[in-house]
Design a protein around this nucleic acid. Structure first.
Lengths: 223, 223
DNA sequence: CTTTATTATAACAATTCTGTCACTTTCGCA
DNA sequence: TGCGAAAGTGACAGAATTGTTATAATAAAG
Protein backbone atom coordinates (compact mmCIF):
# COMPACT_ATOMS: atom_id res chain seq x y z
CA UNK A 1 0.00 0.00 0.00
CA UNK A 2 1.58 3.26 -1.14
CA UNK A 3 1.46 6.35 0.99
CA UNK A 4 0.61 9.57 -0.83
CA UNK A 5 0.85 13.20 0.19
CA UNK A 6 -1.73 15.47 -1.41
CA UNK A 7 -0.80 19.15 -1.43
CA UNK A 8 -3.93 21.05 -2.42
CA UNK A 9 -5.86 23.99 -1.01
CA UNK A 10 -9.25 23.36 -2.61
CA UNK A 11 -11.07 21.41 0.08
CA UNK A 12 -13.64 20.07 -2.37
CA UNK A 13 -10.96 18.44 -4.51
CA UNK A 14 -9.17 17.23 -1.41
CA UNK A 15 -12.10 15.33 0.01
CA UNK A 16 -13.08 13.85 -3.36
CA UNK A 17 -9.55 12.71 -4.08
CA UNK A 18 -9.00 11.27 -0.63
CA UNK A 19 -12.17 9.24 -0.94
CA UNK A 20 -11.35 7.96 -4.40
CA UNK A 21 -7.66 7.25 -3.85
CA UNK A 22 -8.40 5.50 -0.57
CA UNK A 23 -10.93 3.28 -2.33
CA UNK A 24 -8.18 2.41 -4.81
CA UNK A 25 -5.96 1.19 -2.02
CA UNK A 26 -3.76 4.19 -1.36
CA UNK A 27 -3.07 5.74 1.98
CA UNK A 28 -3.48 9.51 1.69
CA UNK A 29 -2.47 12.46 3.85
CA UNK A 30 -3.22 16.00 2.78
CA UNK A 31 -1.95 19.49 3.56
CA UNK A 32 -3.20 22.78 2.15
CA UNK A 33 -0.01 24.72 1.51
CA UNK A 34 3.64 24.96 0.74
CA UNK A 35 4.94 25.42 4.26
CA UNK A 36 2.97 22.50 5.64
CA UNK A 37 4.10 20.32 2.75
CA UNK A 38 7.80 20.84 3.42
CA UNK A 39 7.13 20.43 7.11
CA UNK A 40 5.39 17.05 6.89
CA UNK A 41 7.77 15.72 4.25
CA UNK A 42 10.60 16.38 6.69
CA UNK A 43 8.88 14.40 9.43
CA UNK A 44 7.04 11.56 7.69
CA UNK A 45 7.99 9.39 4.76
CA UNK A 46 5.90 9.24 1.61
CA UNK A 47 6.02 7.20 -1.57
CA UNK A 48 4.74 9.97 -3.82
CA UNK A 49 3.56 13.60 -3.65
CA UNK A 50 0.57 14.98 -5.59
CA UNK A 51 1.27 18.67 -5.82
CA UNK A 52 -1.01 21.49 -6.91
CA UNK A 53 1.09 24.02 -8.77
CA UNK A 54 -1.03 27.04 -7.99
CA UNK A 55 -1.05 26.99 -4.23
CA UNK A 56 -2.52 30.07 -2.59
CA UNK A 57 0.52 30.50 -0.35
CA UNK A 58 3.53 30.17 -2.62
CA UNK A 59 4.02 28.29 -5.85
CA UNK A 60 4.51 24.61 -6.36
CA UNK A 61 7.74 24.63 -8.35
CA UNK A 62 9.83 25.62 -5.35
CA UNK A 63 8.20 22.93 -3.24
CA UNK A 64 8.94 20.34 -5.91
CA UNK A 65 12.60 21.34 -6.09
CA UNK A 66 12.93 21.16 -2.34
CA UNK A 67 11.25 17.75 -2.05
CA UNK A 68 13.32 16.39 -4.91
CA UNK A 69 16.66 17.57 -3.62
CA UNK A 70 16.05 16.67 0.01
CA UNK A 71 14.09 13.47 -0.23
CA UNK A 72 14.07 12.31 -3.83
CA UNK A 73 10.39 11.38 -3.57
CA UNK A 74 8.49 11.21 -6.87
CA UNK A 75 6.22 14.19 -7.54
CA UNK A 76 3.19 14.51 -9.80
CA UNK A 77 1.96 18.00 -10.57
CA UNK A 78 -1.76 18.67 -10.64
CA UNK A 79 -2.64 21.88 -12.31
CA UNK A 80 -5.32 24.06 -13.78
CA UNK A 81 -2.81 25.87 -15.96
CA UNK A 82 -2.51 23.54 -18.90
CA UNK A 83 -0.23 25.71 -20.91
CA UNK A 84 2.95 24.50 -22.51
CA UNK A 85 5.20 26.76 -20.49
CA UNK A 86 3.95 25.39 -17.18
CA UNK A 87 4.25 21.80 -18.32
CA UNK A 88 7.78 22.23 -19.52
CA UNK A 89 8.79 24.13 -16.37
CA UNK A 90 7.22 21.44 -14.24
CA UNK A 91 9.42 18.79 -15.79
CA UNK A 92 12.44 21.04 -15.47
CA UNK A 93 12.15 21.21 -11.70
CA UNK A 94 12.09 17.42 -11.62
CA UNK A 95 8.40 16.50 -11.75
CA UNK A 96 7.75 12.89 -12.72
CA UNK A 97 4.41 13.58 -14.36
CA UNK A 98 2.18 16.55 -15.00
CA UNK A 99 -1.59 16.23 -15.10
CA UNK A 100 -3.84 19.12 -16.11
CA UNK A 101 -7.17 19.63 -14.36
CA UNK A 102 -9.78 18.54 -14.81
CA UNK A 103 -8.42 15.01 -14.77
CA UNK A 104 -10.26 11.74 -14.87
CA UNK A 105 -9.89 9.84 -11.58
CA UNK A 106 -8.98 6.54 -13.20
CA UNK A 107 -6.35 8.19 -15.35
CA UNK A 108 -4.90 9.78 -12.24
CA UNK A 109 -4.63 6.38 -10.61
CA UNK A 110 -3.02 4.94 -13.74
CA UNK A 111 -0.48 7.71 -13.78
CA UNK A 112 0.27 7.35 -10.06
CA UNK A 113 0.86 3.63 -10.49
CA UNK A 114 2.94 4.30 -13.59
CA UNK A 115 5.22 6.76 -11.80
CA UNK A 116 5.56 4.42 -8.82
CA UNK A 117 6.52 1.65 -11.22
CA UNK A 118 9.04 3.77 -13.07
CA UNK A 119 10.67 5.25 -9.98
CA UNK A 120 10.54 2.05 -7.99
CA UNK A 121 13.14 0.58 -10.23
CA UNK A 122 16.15 -1.18 -8.91
CA UNK A 123 18.52 1.55 -7.87
CA UNK A 124 21.11 0.80 -10.50
CA UNK A 125 21.50 -2.84 -9.48
CA UNK A 126 21.08 -5.53 -12.12
CA UNK A 127 21.60 -9.26 -11.89
CA UNK A 128 22.99 -11.50 -14.62
CA UNK A 129 22.79 -14.98 -13.21
CA UNK A 130 24.81 -14.79 -10.02
CA UNK A 131 26.72 -11.71 -11.14
CA UNK A 132 25.51 -8.42 -9.68
CA UNK A 133 26.29 -5.17 -11.51
CA UNK A 134 25.90 -1.98 -9.47
CA UNK A 135 26.10 1.08 -11.70
CA UNK A 136 25.71 3.35 -8.69
CA UNK A 137 28.96 2.09 -7.23
CA UNK A 138 30.57 1.09 -10.51
CA UNK A 139 31.16 -2.51 -9.51
CA UNK A 140 30.44 -6.07 -10.58
CA UNK A 141 30.46 -8.81 -7.97
CA UNK A 142 29.61 -12.44 -7.32
CA UNK A 143 28.45 -13.62 -3.90
CA UNK A 144 29.36 -10.21 -2.58
CA UNK A 145 32.97 -10.41 -3.69
CA UNK A 146 34.24 -7.82 -6.10
CA UNK A 147 35.23 -9.09 -9.56
CA UNK A 148 37.66 -6.19 -10.06
CA UNK A 149 36.73 -5.52 -13.66
CA UNK A 150 39.07 -3.17 -15.46
CA UNK A 151 37.67 0.09 -16.84
CA UNK A 152 37.19 -1.32 -20.34
CA UNK A 153 35.85 -4.66 -19.16
CA UNK A 154 33.26 -2.79 -17.11
CA UNK A 155 32.28 -0.61 -20.05
CA UNK A 156 31.93 -3.62 -22.30
CA UNK A 157 29.69 -5.29 -19.75
CA UNK A 158 27.52 -2.16 -19.57
CA UNK A 159 27.02 -2.25 -23.33
CA UNK A 160 25.62 -5.76 -23.04
CA UNK A 161 23.52 -4.73 -20.07
CA UNK A 162 21.92 -1.83 -21.93
CA UNK A 163 21.13 -4.08 -24.87
CA UNK A 164 20.10 -7.14 -22.98
CA UNK A 165 18.67 -9.80 -25.24
CA UNK A 166 19.89 -8.16 -28.43
CA UNK A 167 22.60 -9.66 -30.59
CA UNK A 168 25.38 -7.07 -30.82
CA UNK A 169 27.64 -7.21 -33.84
CA UNK A 170 31.39 -6.99 -33.46
CA UNK A 171 31.27 -3.59 -35.11
CA UNK A 172 28.63 -2.30 -32.73
CA UNK A 173 30.72 -3.39 -29.78
CA UNK A 174 33.94 -2.00 -31.20
CA UNK A 175 32.21 1.29 -31.85
CA UNK A 176 30.73 1.44 -28.37
CA UNK A 177 34.08 1.01 -26.61
CA UNK A 178 36.89 1.85 -29.00
CA UNK A 179 35.39 4.68 -31.03
CA UNK A 180 38.31 7.06 -30.60
CA UNK A 181 38.04 9.64 -33.38
CA UNK A 182 36.97 7.00 -35.85
CA UNK A 183 40.25 5.13 -35.54
CA UNK A 184 40.16 1.41 -35.37
CA UNK A 185 41.74 -1.16 -33.16
CA UNK A 186 42.62 -4.65 -34.23
CA UNK A 187 39.39 -6.60 -34.71
CA UNK A 188 40.72 -9.37 -32.56
CA UNK A 189 40.98 -6.99 -29.61
CA UNK A 190 37.26 -7.43 -29.09
CA UNK A 191 37.57 -11.21 -29.11
CA UNK A 192 40.28 -10.97 -26.50
CA UNK A 193 38.18 -8.71 -24.30
CA UNK A 194 35.23 -11.06 -24.55
CA UNK A 195 37.52 -13.82 -23.37
CA UNK A 196 38.88 -11.74 -20.48
CA UNK A 197 35.39 -10.69 -19.41
CA UNK A 198 34.17 -14.28 -19.55
CA UNK A 199 37.15 -15.34 -17.47
CA UNK A 200 35.95 -13.05 -14.69
CA UNK A 201 32.18 -13.33 -15.11
CA UNK A 202 31.48 -16.93 -15.99
CA UNK A 203 31.55 -19.86 -13.63
CA UNK A 204 32.84 -22.00 -16.50
CA UNK A 205 34.46 -19.69 -19.06
CA UNK A 206 34.64 -22.53 -21.60
CA UNK A 207 30.85 -22.87 -21.48
CA UNK A 208 29.66 -19.30 -21.12
CA UNK A 209 26.17 -18.81 -19.68
CA UNK A 210 26.16 -15.03 -19.65
CA UNK A 211 27.93 -13.79 -22.77
CA UNK A 212 26.87 -16.05 -25.61
CA UNK A 213 28.45 -16.25 -29.04
CA UNK A 214 26.10 -15.94 -32.01
CA UNK A 215 28.33 -17.22 -34.76
CA UNK A 216 28.47 -14.94 -37.77
CA UNK A 217 26.47 -12.22 -36.03
CA UNK A 218 28.13 -11.22 -32.80
CA UNK A 219 27.47 -11.76 -29.11
CA UNK A 220 24.50 -11.43 -26.83
CA UNK A 221 23.48 -11.47 -23.18
CA UNK A 222 19.95 -12.68 -22.55
CA UNK A 223 20.13 -14.40 -19.22
CA UNK B 1 22.06 11.49 -28.11
CA UNK B 2 19.03 9.26 -27.72
CA UNK B 3 17.73 7.21 -30.58
CA UNK B 4 13.97 7.24 -31.05
CA UNK B 5 11.66 5.11 -33.16
CA UNK B 6 8.52 6.85 -34.41
CA UNK B 7 5.68 4.53 -35.39
CA UNK B 8 3.14 6.65 -37.22
CA UNK B 9 1.30 6.38 -40.54
CA UNK B 10 0.39 10.03 -41.07
CA UNK B 11 3.27 11.27 -43.19
CA UNK B 12 2.56 14.91 -42.34
CA UNK B 13 3.01 14.26 -38.65
CA UNK B 14 6.04 12.09 -39.35
CA UNK B 15 7.98 14.72 -41.24
CA UNK B 16 7.07 17.49 -38.79
CA UNK B 17 8.09 15.38 -35.81
CA UNK B 18 11.32 14.18 -37.37
CA UNK B 19 12.34 17.74 -38.10
CA UNK B 20 11.50 19.01 -34.65
CA UNK B 21 12.92 16.09 -32.68
CA UNK B 22 16.13 16.13 -34.70
CA UNK B 23 16.55 19.83 -33.97
CA UNK B 24 16.22 18.96 -30.28
CA UNK B 25 19.15 16.59 -30.51
CA UNK B 26 17.40 13.26 -30.93
CA UNK B 27 18.17 10.71 -33.58
CA UNK B 28 14.89 9.58 -35.15
CA UNK B 29 13.89 6.63 -37.34
CA UNK B 30 10.32 6.16 -38.44
CA UNK B 31 8.14 3.35 -39.73
CA UNK B 32 4.50 3.52 -40.80
CA UNK B 33 3.03 0.37 -39.32
CA UNK B 34 2.91 -2.40 -36.80
CA UNK B 35 4.76 -5.04 -38.79
CA UNK B 36 7.64 -2.74 -39.67
CA UNK B 37 7.87 -1.58 -36.05
CA UNK B 38 8.36 -5.08 -34.68
CA UNK B 39 10.73 -5.82 -37.50
CA UNK B 40 13.07 -2.89 -36.97
CA UNK B 41 12.97 -3.18 -33.18
CA UNK B 42 14.27 -6.70 -33.56
CA UNK B 43 17.20 -5.58 -35.69
CA UNK B 44 18.22 -2.17 -34.31
CA UNK B 45 18.43 -0.85 -30.79
CA UNK B 46 16.41 2.17 -29.69
CA UNK B 47 16.21 4.20 -26.52
CA UNK B 48 12.51 4.93 -26.78
CA UNK B 49 9.51 4.26 -29.03
CA UNK B 50 6.85 6.85 -29.90
CA UNK B 51 3.83 4.82 -30.85
CA UNK B 52 0.60 5.89 -32.51
CA UNK B 53 -2.22 3.84 -31.03
CA UNK B 54 -4.52 3.96 -34.01
CA UNK B 55 -2.32 2.51 -36.74
CA UNK B 56 -4.11 1.71 -39.95
CA UNK B 57 -2.68 -1.79 -40.06
CA UNK B 58 -3.29 -3.20 -36.58
CA UNK B 59 -3.56 -1.51 -33.23
CA UNK B 60 -0.81 -0.13 -31.09
CA UNK B 61 -1.50 -1.95 -27.87
CA UNK B 62 -0.27 -5.27 -29.22
CA UNK B 63 2.89 -3.65 -30.55
CA UNK B 64 3.55 -2.08 -27.17
CA UNK B 65 3.15 -5.40 -25.37
CA UNK B 66 5.50 -7.08 -27.79
CA UNK B 67 8.17 -4.40 -27.56
CA UNK B 68 7.93 -4.35 -23.79
CA UNK B 69 8.19 -8.07 -23.31
CA UNK B 70 10.91 -8.62 -25.86
CA UNK B 71 13.10 -5.57 -25.50
CA UNK B 72 11.99 -3.62 -22.47
CA UNK B 73 12.33 -0.37 -24.38
CA UNK B 74 10.29 2.55 -22.99
CA UNK B 75 7.17 3.39 -25.00
CA UNK B 76 5.18 6.61 -25.21
CA UNK B 77 1.72 6.43 -26.77
CA UNK B 78 0.62 9.18 -29.10
CA UNK B 79 -3.09 9.17 -29.68
CA UNK B 80 -6.09 10.98 -31.02
CA UNK B 81 -8.43 9.05 -28.78
CA UNK B 82 -8.15 11.00 -25.58
CA UNK B 83 -10.69 9.03 -23.67
CA UNK B 84 -10.16 7.64 -20.23
CA UNK B 85 -10.53 4.04 -21.33
CA UNK B 86 -7.72 4.31 -23.87
CA UNK B 87 -5.41 6.05 -21.45
CA UNK B 88 -5.91 3.47 -18.76
CA UNK B 89 -5.51 0.60 -21.23
CA UNK B 90 -2.35 2.19 -22.55
CA UNK B 91 -0.78 2.12 -19.13
CA UNK B 92 -1.98 -1.42 -18.58
CA UNK B 93 0.00 -2.74 -21.54
CA UNK B 94 3.07 -1.11 -20.09
CA UNK B 95 3.22 2.33 -21.69
CA UNK B 96 5.48 4.77 -19.89
CA UNK B 97 3.50 7.83 -20.87
CA UNK B 98 0.41 8.63 -22.86
CA UNK B 99 0.06 11.86 -24.81
CA UNK B 100 -3.19 12.85 -26.53
CA UNK B 101 -3.09 14.61 -29.88
CA UNK B 102 -2.84 17.39 -30.62
CA UNK B 103 0.22 17.79 -28.44
CA UNK B 104 2.61 20.71 -28.10
CA UNK B 105 6.06 19.91 -29.47
CA UNK B 106 7.96 21.22 -26.46
CA UNK B 107 5.76 19.26 -24.10
CA UNK B 108 6.45 16.15 -26.14
CA UNK B 109 10.18 16.72 -25.77
CA UNK B 110 9.80 17.28 -22.03
CA UNK B 111 7.88 14.07 -21.70
CA UNK B 112 10.37 12.12 -23.79
CA UNK B 113 13.24 13.37 -21.63
CA UNK B 114 11.23 12.64 -18.52
CA UNK B 115 10.55 9.05 -19.53
CA UNK B 116 14.19 8.55 -20.51
CA UNK B 117 15.22 9.87 -17.12
CA UNK B 118 12.74 7.70 -15.23
CA UNK B 119 13.62 4.57 -17.13
CA UNK B 120 17.27 5.18 -16.49
CA UNK B 121 18.37 5.43 -20.08
CA UNK B 122 19.82 8.90 -19.71
CA UNK B 123 19.22 9.07 -15.99
CA UNK B 124 22.82 7.99 -15.72
CA UNK B 125 24.09 11.29 -17.04
CA UNK B 126 25.21 13.90 -14.54
CA UNK B 127 27.13 17.11 -15.05
CA UNK B 128 29.74 18.47 -12.68
CA UNK B 129 30.73 21.79 -14.19
CA UNK B 130 31.91 20.84 -17.63
CA UNK B 131 32.55 17.23 -16.73
CA UNK B 132 29.87 14.76 -17.80
CA UNK B 133 29.58 11.44 -15.98
CA UNK B 134 27.57 8.73 -17.76
CA UNK B 135 26.88 5.80 -15.47
CA UNK B 136 25.07 3.99 -18.24
CA UNK B 137 28.24 3.85 -20.29
CA UNK B 138 30.65 4.00 -17.38
CA UNK B 139 32.47 7.06 -18.63
CA UNK B 140 33.48 10.56 -17.62
CA UNK B 141 34.17 13.13 -20.33
CA UNK B 142 34.78 16.82 -20.97
CA UNK B 143 33.67 18.47 -24.20
CA UNK B 144 32.87 15.03 -25.50
CA UNK B 145 36.38 13.68 -25.01
CA UNK B 146 36.84 10.74 -22.72
CA UNK B 147 38.85 11.39 -19.55
CA UNK B 148 39.92 7.73 -19.33
CA UNK B 149 39.41 7.38 -15.60
CA UNK B 150 40.84 4.21 -14.11
CA UNK B 151 38.46 1.79 -12.40
CA UNK B 152 39.21 3.16 -8.93
CA UNK B 153 39.17 6.78 -9.99
CA UNK B 154 35.75 6.22 -11.52
CA UNK B 155 34.46 4.54 -8.38
CA UNK B 156 35.76 7.37 -6.22
CA UNK B 157 34.01 9.88 -8.43
CA UNK B 158 30.74 7.93 -8.14
CA UNK B 159 30.97 8.11 -4.34
CA UNK B 160 31.10 11.90 -4.56
CA UNK B 161 28.30 11.90 -7.10
CA UNK B 162 26.00 9.88 -4.91
CA UNK B 163 26.70 12.17 -1.98
CA UNK B 164 26.71 15.44 -3.80
CA UNK B 165 26.90 18.40 -1.47
CA UNK B 166 27.84 16.34 1.55
CA UNK B 167 31.26 16.49 3.18
CA UNK B 168 32.74 13.00 3.08
CA UNK B 169 35.35 12.12 5.69
CA UNK B 170 38.56 10.39 4.68
CA UNK B 171 37.35 7.29 6.49
CA UNK B 172 34.04 7.26 4.65
CA UNK B 173 35.86 7.47 1.34
CA UNK B 174 38.44 4.83 2.26
CA UNK B 175 35.64 2.52 3.37
CA UNK B 176 33.67 3.10 0.19
CA UNK B 177 36.52 2.15 -2.13
CA UNK B 178 39.14 0.17 -0.21
CA UNK B 179 37.00 -1.84 2.17
CA UNK B 180 38.55 -5.20 1.42
CA UNK B 181 37.69 -7.47 4.33
CA UNK B 182 38.16 -4.64 6.80
CA UNK B 183 41.82 -4.26 5.93
CA UNK B 184 43.18 -0.80 5.52
CA UNK B 185 45.36 0.88 2.99
CA UNK B 186 47.76 3.66 3.75
CA UNK B 187 45.76 6.78 4.64
CA UNK B 188 47.77 8.79 2.15
CA UNK B 189 46.52 6.56 -0.65
CA UNK B 190 43.27 8.50 -0.59
CA UNK B 191 45.10 11.84 -0.80
CA UNK B 192 46.99 10.56 -3.81
CA UNK B 193 43.79 9.40 -5.51
CA UNK B 194 42.16 12.76 -4.90
CA UNK B 195 45.14 14.35 -6.57
CA UNK B 196 45.02 11.98 -9.53
CA UNK B 197 41.28 12.49 -9.95
CA UNK B 198 41.69 16.26 -9.78
CA UNK B 199 44.44 16.06 -12.35
CA UNK B 200 41.95 14.53 -14.80
CA UNK B 201 38.75 16.34 -13.79
CA UNK B 202 39.73 19.88 -12.97
CA UNK B 203 40.62 22.58 -15.44
CA UNK B 204 43.13 23.93 -12.92
CA UNK B 205 44.06 21.08 -10.55
CA UNK B 206 45.80 23.53 -8.19
CA UNK B 207 42.51 25.40 -7.71
CA UNK B 208 39.92 22.65 -7.72
CA UNK B 209 36.37 23.66 -8.58
CA UNK B 210 34.81 20.23 -8.43
CA UNK B 211 36.39 18.29 -5.57
CA UNK B 212 36.82 20.73 -2.72
CA UNK B 213 38.89 20.18 0.40
CA UNK B 214 37.17 20.78 3.74
CA UNK B 215 40.15 20.96 6.04
CA UNK B 216 39.86 18.74 9.08
CA UNK B 217 36.66 17.10 7.82
CA UNK B 218 37.23 15.61 4.40
CA UNK B 219 36.20 16.46 0.85
CA UNK B 220 33.02 17.45 -0.91
CA UNK B 221 31.51 18.01 -4.34
CA UNK B 222 28.73 20.55 -4.46
CA UNK B 223 29.06 22.16 -7.84
C1' DC C 1 35.55 -35.41 -45.12
C1' DT C 2 37.84 -31.26 -46.32
C1' DT C 3 37.88 -26.47 -46.84
C1' DT C 4 37.32 -22.01 -45.14
C1' DA C 5 35.79 -18.32 -42.37
C1' DT C 6 35.01 -17.38 -37.72
C1' DT C 7 36.04 -17.49 -32.99
C1' DA C 8 39.23 -18.75 -29.15
C1' DT C 9 43.63 -18.91 -26.85
C1' DA C 10 48.39 -18.06 -25.35
C1' DA C 11 51.99 -15.20 -24.99
C1' DC C 12 54.35 -10.66 -25.61
C1' DA C 13 55.92 -5.76 -24.85
C1' DA C 14 54.40 -1.15 -23.79
C1' DT C 15 51.75 1.41 -21.03
C1' DT C 16 49.05 2.45 -17.12
C1' DC C 17 47.46 1.55 -12.51
C1' DT C 18 48.11 0.99 -7.71
C1' DG C 19 49.97 1.65 -3.29
C1' DT C 20 53.70 3.46 -0.69
C1' DC C 21 57.42 6.46 0.75
C1' DA C 22 59.80 10.65 1.58
C1' DC C 23 59.30 15.24 1.35
C1' DT C 24 56.91 19.88 0.77
C1' DT C 25 53.28 23.04 1.23
C1' DT C 26 49.30 24.97 3.42
C1' DC C 27 46.26 26.27 7.03
C1' DG C 28 44.59 27.24 11.70
C1' DC C 29 45.90 28.59 16.00
C1' DA C 30 48.72 29.60 20.12
C1' DT D 1 55.20 35.04 13.90
C1' DG D 2 56.14 30.27 14.21
C1' DC D 3 54.42 25.52 15.51
C1' DG D 4 52.06 21.40 14.47
C1' DA D 5 48.62 18.95 12.10
C1' DA D 6 46.56 18.25 7.74
C1' DA D 7 46.83 18.04 2.96
C1' DG D 8 49.56 18.01 -1.36
C1' DT D 9 53.39 16.44 -4.40
C1' DG D 10 56.89 13.72 -6.93
C1' DA D 11 58.94 9.55 -7.54
C1' DC D 12 59.29 4.57 -7.15
C1' DA D 13 58.55 -0.55 -7.93
C1' DG D 14 55.40 -4.25 -8.52
C1' DA D 15 51.09 -5.52 -10.53
C1' DA D 16 47.55 -5.15 -13.82
C1' DT D 17 45.80 -3.40 -18.13
C1' DT D 18 45.92 -2.85 -22.96
C1' DG D 19 46.57 -3.93 -27.73
C1' DT D 20 48.92 -6.92 -30.80
C1' DT D 21 50.72 -11.11 -32.96
C1' DA D 22 50.86 -15.85 -33.91
C1' DT D 23 48.63 -20.02 -33.56
C1' DA D 24 44.84 -23.29 -32.35
C1' DA D 25 40.11 -24.76 -32.14
C1' DT D 26 35.51 -24.71 -34.00
C1' DA D 27 31.53 -24.72 -36.87
C1' DA D 28 29.18 -24.26 -41.28
C1' DA D 29 29.16 -25.37 -46.16
C1' DG D 30 30.63 -27.75 -50.20
Amino acid sequence: MSKLLLVEDDSGIVSALIEFLTSEGFSVRSVPGQREALDIVGRESFDLVLLDVSLSNGNGFAVCSAIKSEKGIPVIFLTASDDEYSTVSGFEVGADDYIPKPFRPRELVSRIRNVLRLTGRTGGVTRLGDVVIDTVRGTASRNGTDLFLSALEYRLLLVFLNNRGAVLSRNQLLEAIWDIAGEFVNDNTLTVYIKRLREKLEKDPQNPEIIKTVRGLGYKVDI
